[in-house]
Simulated scan of single mutants.
Amino acid sequence: MKKIGYTTGVFDLFHIGHLNVLKRARLECDYLIVGVTSDELSSTVKGKKPVIPFVERMEIVEAIKFVDEVVPQTNYDKREAWSNLKFDMMFVGDDWKGTEKWNAIETEFNALGVEIFYFPYTTHTSSTILRDVLTRI
């Protein structure tokens, strides 16, 4: 049976940390679906508009050989995403592991047979660090 994986991100100022997550996720599944966060959702939730426009970020992620399908992420409702995509596993940065929110998501998805994988967060490179460097130039 084909294992479908799912992960999401803003993927602004695409860097090695993004690539590593996508590469590692694809090693765990047969088909990888990636949700790219819309400009509106990023602005509302994170309080900052991405540097790279949404359509361009979608194109960048679509071009990555580890990615089989790209979908817009317009909300953070993981259950709704599962209802639409029927993935078997979800990949998340380990900075969320053990949080109240993700403990609840793990419990909910465990009942659905969906496995949650946590991958190490890339500390030496991040879009936030890149954004800060760019604003200093």
Rank of each mutant, 00 (worst) to 15 (best):
W96M: 08
N75A: 04
V92F: 01
F66H: 05
N84I: 07
R79M: 15
G93W: 02
E62D: 13
M58S: 06
T74F: 06
Y118G: 12
Y118M: 01
E80S: 11
M58V: 07
N110D: 15
E59I: 13
N110I: 12
V70G: 10
A111S: 11
L85N: 13
V61Y: 02
N103L: 05
E59H: 14
S83H: 04
V70K: 04
F66V: 07
G98H: 11
V92I: 11
P120I: 06
D95M: 06
Y76G: 08
E59Q: 12
D95E: 15
F91S: 02
V71T: 14
P120V: 07
V67I: 14
E115G: 10
W82F: 08
A63F: 01
Y118P: 04
A81F: 00
Y121V: 13
N84K: 14
N110T: 15
R79I: 15
R79C: 08
V61M: 02
F91W: 00
T107A: 09
P120G: 05
Y118C: 04
N75M: 00
T107Q: 12
E100D: 15
E115S: 00
L112F: 13
V67R: 02
I116T: 13
K78R: 15
W82G: 06
F117E: 10
E69V: 14
W96I: 03
Y76F: 06
Y118K: 06
F119W: 01
D94H: 05
V114H: 01
E115Y: 00
D68I: 08
Q73Y: 09
K101W: 10
P72M: 13
V92H: 02
E115D: 10
K97L: 03
D88W: 01
L112I: 07
A81N: 14
V61I: 14
F66E: 12
A111R: 07
I105Q: 09
E100A: 11
M90L: 08
L85S: 09
I64Y: 04
T99W: 05
S83L: 11
A104C: 02
E80A: 10
A111M: 05
R79E: 15
V67G: 03
E115W: 01
K86M: 11
E62R: 08
F87L: 02
A104I: 11
K78W: 06
A111V: 01
K65V: 04
F109L: 04
V67P: 01
F109M: 10
A63V: 08
